[in-house]
Amino acid sequence: MPTACWWAYPMNGPAALHGPARPEWTCVACGDPWPCRTRKRQLKDLCRCDVRLLRNYLTPYLRDARVELVDVDLAEITERFLGWCDRPLDRPSAGDPPGGDGGGAAPEGEAGGRPALPG
C-alpha cells in the first residue's frame, strides 16, 4: 500500500494558493469555503485517496475552524472538513458551493504554516 509523504511538501507553490484565509475559512485563491473543491482534489491526490491519512491531515484544521467559525453549526463544520473524505469528489458535500471552482494543480503543501502530523 503506497504512503503519501504530504508532510515533506514545501509551504509554497500552486497548492498553497488554495490555502485557508483565517478566521473566515475561505480559500485565498477562489474565495469558496475552505477546503474548496480544488484543494479537496489536491489533497485526495496527495493522500492517494487514503481516507484515514486525509482525515488525520484535516483534523487539526477542523479543530481550529470549530473555534474560529463561531456562527456555524459544529455538525456543518465537521461535514465541510471531513464529510467529503470518503466520497468521490463528483458527489458534492454540504460545504461545497454550487459549481465548485473547477480544478487545480498538483498539491505541493498547505498555506498557513500548519505543522506536520506525526505518522
Rank of each mutant, 00 (worst) to 15 (best):
Ala15Leu: 11
Gly119Glu: 11
Gly113Gln: 14
Ile77Ala: 11
Pro92Ile: 01
Pro10Tyr: 14
Trp6Val: 09
Pro88Leu: 13
Tyr57Ser: 04
Ala75Pro: 00
Leu43Ser: 06
Ala16Asn: 06
Ala116Trp: 11
Ala15Gln: 13
Cys36Lys: 01
Pro118Arg: 09
Arg39Thr: 10
Asp71Arg: 01
Trp6His: 14
Ala15Ser: 15
Gln42Val: 08
Trp25Leu: 00
Ala21Lys: 12
Trp6Ser: 07
Pro2Leu: 09
Trp6Lys: 11
Asp96Pro: 00
Asp90Arg: 07
Trp34Thr: 02
Trp6Asn: 12
Cys49Phe: 12
Pro107Val: 14
Met1Trp: 09
Arg37Asp: 03
Tyr9Cys: 13
Asp101Leu: 02
Asp90Cys: 03
Pro10Gly: 13
Arg80Met: 13
Pro60Val: 05
Thr26Trp: 00
Glu110Ala: 15
Pro92Ser: 03
Thr3Gln: 07
Pro2Cys: 09
Asn56Gly: 13
Pro60Trp: 00
Tyr9Trp: 15
Met11His: 15
Leu46Thr: 12
Cys47Met: 10
Cys5Thr: 14
Pro14Val: 09
Leu89Lys: 06
Leu117Glu: 05
Gly109Cys: 10
Leu43Tyr: 04
Cys30Lys: 04
Ala116Ser: 14
Val51Ser: 11
Trp25Tyr: 02
Asp96Glu: 04
Pro118Met: 04
Gly112Thr: 10
Trp25Ser: 00
Trp25Gln: 01
Trp34Phe: 05
Leu43Lys: 00
Arg22Glu: 09
Val70Asp: 08
Met1Val: 04
Val28Ala: 12
Pro35Val: 02
Asp64Ala: 08
Ile77His: 10
Arg55Leu: 07
Pro20Asn: 08
Ala15Gly: 11
Val67Lys: 06
Trp6Thr: 09
Arg37His: 07
Asp73Thr: 14
Ala16Met: 02
Ser93Lys: 03
Leu46Ser: 08
Trp84Gly: 00
Leu74Cys: 13
Val70Thr: 08
Pro107Trp: 15
Pro88Asp: 13
Gly103Val: 03
Ile77Arg: 12
Asn12Tyr: 11
Pro97Leu: 06
Trp84Ser: 01
Gly13Lys: 02
Cys49Thr: 01
Ala111Glu: 07
Ile77Gln: 10
Trp25Lys: 00
Lys44Ala: 12
Glu108Ala: 08
Leu62Asn: 00
Arg63Asn: 04
Lys44Gln: 13
Ser93Leu: 01
Ala16Cys: 08
Leu69Asn: 00
Pro2Gly: 01
Cys30Asp: 06
Val67Arg: 08
Pro35Glu: 06
Pro33Arg: 09
Pro35Gln: 05
Pro88Thr: 12
Asp64Ser: 10
Arg55Asp: 10
Pro10Asn: 11
Gly83Val: 02
Arg66Lys: 12
Gly109Ala: 15
Glu68Lys: 02
Val67Ile: 07
Gly104Arg: 05
Thr26Leu: 06
Thr59Gln: 10
Glu108Phe: 10
Arg22Cys: 02
Gly99Cys: 02
Thr3Cys: 04
Ser93Trp: 02
Arg87Lys: 07
Ala21Thr: 14
Thr3Tyr: 05
